[in-house]
Amino acid sequence: MSLSLDQVSFAYPDGPVVLEKASITFEAGSFTIVQGLSGAGKSTLLRLLCRLEEAQSGRILFNGQPIETMAPADLRRSVAYVQQMPTLLSSSVRENLLLPFSFKANVGLNRPSDEVLTSHLESFLLSGVTLESEATRLSVGQAQRICLVRSLLLDPEIVLLDEPTASLDAESAGVVLEKAAELGRGGMTVIMISHSQTMPEGVTHVVTIKDRSLERA
């Protein structure tokens, strides 16, 4: 599944212009790293792609379809957005992982069983964490991995990762980057913000936000 920006302009109310007539296509199955100075608009770009921000002009297309013609929940199920700082509710890991399945828009989806959840935890090297663990007691690195699992349970086609390793220890960062690469290899479209100079494995494109526009390196 592809995502494109077509002449998109965006400014925050009473704030600076972030993007001006920016155009780019993130092809299906590509793994793109987004770079740029802080405040350049990297997070804003990801938020525009899942409609947590609304462009003032231009179009954003999901597989050629303007995203405003899709129900927000449908778009967000296909385009998963993982925040920079992991946000979990004060309850068990299980309840946090199953949270999306409690929303009306997702009731038709298959609720994963405990076995499926546990196998996800293991594949993210979270074997010390149980489904009963209190989510708010986890380390930032563990919490970020739980957030990633939670998004992937909805079976998205595109994943937006907002600097997922920014506040993680080396081990957690390694797991997250390895997972991102694995998703890319599996045919998922991955768009990830990164400040790091070392490129994760499998990156196909690098995009830089500069002077309110997007440049491919």
């Binding site: 899942c50 947590l52 927000p72 929940a73 967000r76 199920r77 998963a80 957005y81 925040q83 700082m85 946000t87 509710l89 949270l99 999306p100 409690s102 929303f103 009306k104 828009a105 997702n106 957030c147 939670r150 998004s151 909805l154």
Partner: peptide
């Protein structure tokens, strides 16, 4: 905000 937007991003409507 981050909690509310986390839920929106996971498919919640504004009420949820």
């Amino acid at each position: 905000r981050s909690e509310v937007e986390m839920m929106l991003a996971l498919g919640a409507d504004y009420r949820e």
